[in-house]
């Protein structure tokens, strides 16, 4: 049981942050929204059509998913890996078009992976794999993105860079939902927040209203200290 009642709509141009303790069901929720997991009750719809009524391929053309763990070994190089993002859009059965390759190249450049593009994927470090996964999702050119911990394994530079990339997607009218553990990034980039509590209830609304010490202390069930630096609120777990 992840969450008892949740009735919400994500609109184009919105960026949602999902916050909650470990094991509370953030990933399960995201997988459910992605159609990878059937909800026990209720339904999820995309563009007013139930997920189950979308053909898998059609869904993948509109919905990009960044998984927390992929559970697969990819045998090819980084460029081939990123190019898989074009799979749902592929016009021919026999490979990818020049445009597909150009989009992949563009995404590689956005994630600063050009230098590694010919290297075998399984030689990459954790952070590099994460950047490759983000590049793959970007290559998919979806309208709607579900991102499970997009910042995991990333160093500070690439955290900032990835969040910038996501903000640009939002400005272009994409709808985004991302699981985050860093409240600062949630404040900076998300306009809405969904909080999943351990007892099964959920809170959602504008980020400014929900990202307060009271709510976050209740969410993480630990005392927090609030620091204010240049107008930004930082929350640090108190000891």
């Amino acid at each position: 049981m992840v969450c008892r009642e949740l009735d919400m709509t994500i609109r184009p141009g919105e960026c949602w942050g999902v916050l909650g303790q470990n094991g509370v069901g953030k990933t399960t929720l995201l997988r459910t929204l992605a159609g990878l997991h059937k909800p026990q009750t209720g339904m999820v719809s995309l563009n007013d059509v139930a997920l189950a009524d979308h053909a898998r391929r059609n869904l993948a053309q509109h919905l990009g998913v960044l998984l927390q763990s992929e559970g697969g070994e990819f045998w090819g190089n980084v460029q081939e890996y990123v190019l898989l993002g074009r799979f749902p859009h592929r016009a021919s059965l026999f490979g990818y078009s020049v445009q597909d390759e150009a989009l992949a190249q563009q995404a590689l450049a956005q994630m600063e992976l050009e230098r590694l593009s010919q290297q075998p994927y399984n030689t990459l470090s954790g952070g590099e794999r994460q950047r490759a996964a983000i590049a793959q999702a970007l290559t998919q050119r979806a309208q709607c993105y579900l991102l499970d911990e997009p910042l995991q394994h990333l160093d500070l530079r690439h955290q900032a860079q990835s969040m910038q990339v996501f903000s640009r997607l939002k400005e272009k009218g994409c709808a985004l939902m991302m699981v985050l553990h860093d409240t600062l990034w949630a404040q900076r980039c998300c306009d809405h927040v969904l909080m999943l509590f351990a007892d099964g209830h959920a809170l959602h609304g504008p980020a400014q209203e929900l990202l307060t010490r009271v709510h976050l202390e209740a969410l993480y069930q630990c005392p927090l200290r609030e620091l204010c630096v240049e107008g930004e609120r930082w929350f640090v777990a108190g000891v």
Partner: peptide, 16 residues
């Protein structure tokens, strides 16, 4: 190619 990279990923990329 997609399937070899992971089953959830393959499903997310539109493979039945």
């Amino acid at each position: 190619d997609v399937l070899a990279g992971g089953l959830d990923k393959a499903a997310a990329l539109g493979v039945a």
